[in-house]
Design a protein around this nucleic acid. Structure first.
Length: 507
RNA sequence: CGGUCUGUAGCUCAGCUGGCAGAGCAGCUGACUCUUAAUCAGCGGGUCCAGGGUUCGAGUCCCUGCAGACCGACCA
């Protein structure tokens, strides 16, 4: 292992560590610390007329220090926020020995160290609620200087904005940027809000395989790995759809899973190789029911996060209260591309793409071309939540044929801010039709479509035993979180977004 | 994969037509018992992303590479 050159400040901190040990103080004590409150609790509950916090014990990280001879102020940050502490020499060291204040607190502690304090809350002459410290315990010595961010009147000074630092060292980002912690708290709330709704209906949260011998349920390039004992290739799942439907066959009326899916494709502001999808399947429902349920989910999530269904996103306010507009794929293309694709052949569609300057390849069939026109000309217009319904059969191999419109399927996607956030079907449960659709995918694959679906014969076998009419939906949790927290990049809603490994740079 | 931009102290950044490497915060020493971007006096701290080239001389100009951001392409 190479020994990277330590900076001056790192060397000083290591020396301090040794001196702390020489004082007989353990810089990394094992014993639990008896925290009995938080910064936020004190700030919220403090009263000038009654002594509500005569004995507090809290712990956190030193974020700033103002040392003035024999008394000092510092800011302590715990998971709830920051509070000022007041440390006076003669309170910390009532006896003759002033080492704890003069040496430990003033010299050997640094910004970033984690300490515990015991004392009482009071209000300073300047009006700030503060903890007067009677007893101080070092809980963890920090050896690496933290980026210093100062703030006055809401203005941040020297804020760390370098995305590389923020994403590679997310722990630092979380320490110094409280609004980042809030985004991730909201991400958890999004999932909790959905769980509450599903559980209230007695739908069952389940787990299905991440390692799959046949990567099914979506059209995407998978990651491949190898299982040594079985000596077979295994794929990281691109979707959990086919397993969840097997469970509907097995007799559950409603199942859902928050799944990490993996796709070996491009990375950009909207895509990360691993991402989270909620999939839910409910027996005896169709896609019309699912649209109403989706409206209920979205407005509940918005309410739980913001207390309103109106959520700001970029320059817009998104209204998540239903009902949402429903536009068929055909009408959307009529409206924004100005053409009627009804009854058009593959050649006609290819011709229209050429006319509109949309690039396409020979391996694309009619359905893919329609998808392309929609993506190019229509998608970005749908800012407010809108259901795009009735997709072509060719690109929807797991979807039931439309009950009344030939060549189309009972499928919808929910568009928000010009992007897809949900995708749902009346699930195809006719095993003979399903097998035929898989074969159609095979033909597309042979034509050069490298993300056409694999045939999963066990899934067909399951359908042969009989699956009730079912509606299913997937929601992109990362994207939904972006929209609900007004973030413009998927990297801002993933704790640890995928990045190129760090090179030879010394850490 | 292509275009544009960026990389200098722990952090945020300056450094002009090439001429001794800079500031604020942070750190260190000292003063200060109600400060809050604390203040005051003093002091240290650099592989200027890496490698090569041009030049008497390169942080600065040129080439290659590495890493990142943005925009496209591919891709849900």
């Amino acid at each position: 292992m190479s020994t990277p050159q330590l900076s001056e400040q790192e060397q000083v901190r290591r020396q301090s560590l040794e001196e702390i040990r020489k004082l007989g103080i353990d810089p990394y004590p094992a014993a639990m610390y008896p925290v009995n409150t938080t910064a936020a609790e004190i700030l919220a509950g403090f009263s000038d007329t009654e002594d509500k916090f005569p004995e507090v014990c809290l712990a956190g990280r030193i974020m700033s220090r103002r040392i003035m001879g024999n008394a000092s102020f510092a800011e302590l940050m715990d998971s709830s926020g920051r509070i000022q502490i007041y440390v006076r020499r003669d309170d910390l060291c009532p006896g003759e020995d002033k080492t704890l204040y003069n040496t430990l607190f003033k010299k050997l502690l640094d910004i970033g160290d984690i300490i515990g304090v015991r004392g009482f809350a009071f209000r300073t002459q300047m009006g700030e609620i503060t903890v007067h410290v009677k007893e101080l315990t070092l809980l963890s010595k920090s050896l690496r200087p933290l980026p210093i961010v100062k703030e006055k009147d809401g203005v941040m000074y020297d804020a760390v904005t370098d995305p590389e630092m923020r994403y590679r060292q997310r722990y630092v980002d979380l320490i110094i940027n409280p609004e980042v912690r809030e985004v991730f708290r909201k991400r958890t709330l999004v999932m909790r809000s959905m769980r509450e709704l599903f559980d209230s209906r007695s739908y069952l949260e389940v787990e299905t395989p991440v390692l799959q011998a046949i990567p099914g349920g979506a059209a995407a390039r998978p990651f491949v790995t190898h299982h040594n004992a079985l000596d077979i290739p295994l794929y990281l799942r691109i979707a959990d759809e086919l397993y969840l439907k097997r469970l509907i066959v097995g007799g559950y009326d409603g199942v859902y899973e928050f799944a990490k899916d993996f796709r070996n494709e491009g990375m950009d502001r909207m895509h990360n190789p691993e991402f989270t999808v909620l999939e839910i399947y409910v027996a005896y429902k169709d896609y019309n029911w699912m649209m109403e349920f989706t409206e209920e989910i979205m407005s509940k999530v918005a309410m739980d996060l913001h207390g309103t269904t109106k959520v700001p996103l970029g320059d817009n306010i998104i209204e998540y209260a239903g009902p949402y507009r429903r536009v068929s794929m055909t009408d959307a293309i009529k409206e924004y591309a100005g053409i009627d694709i009804t009854g058009m052949s593959e050649d006609d569609l290819r011709h229209e793409c050429d006319r509109m300057g949309i690039g396409h390849s020979p391996s694309m069939g009619a359905g893919k071309l329609i998808d392309l026109i929609f993506g190019e000309k229509c998608e970005h217009h749908f800012i407010q939540p809108t259901f795009i319904i009735d997709y072509p059969q060719e690109t929807s191999p797991l979807t039931k044929k439309h009950r009344s419109r030939a060549g189309l399927t009972e499928r919808f996607e929910l568009m928000v801010n010009g992007k897809e956030v949900a995708n749902a079907y009346s699930e195809l449960n006719d095993p003979i039709d399903q097998l035929e659709r898989f074969h159609e995918q095979m033909r597309l694959s042979q034509k050069g479509d490298d993300e056409a679906m694999f045939i999963d014969m066990d899934f067909v076998r399951a359908l042969e035993y009989g699956m009730p009419p079912t509606s299913g939906m997937g929601i992109g949790i990362d994207r939904l979180t972006m929209f609900m927290t007004n973030q413009q990049s998927i990297q801002d809603v993933l704790f640890f977004p995928q990045m190129r490994p760090e090179g030879q740079k010394p850490l």
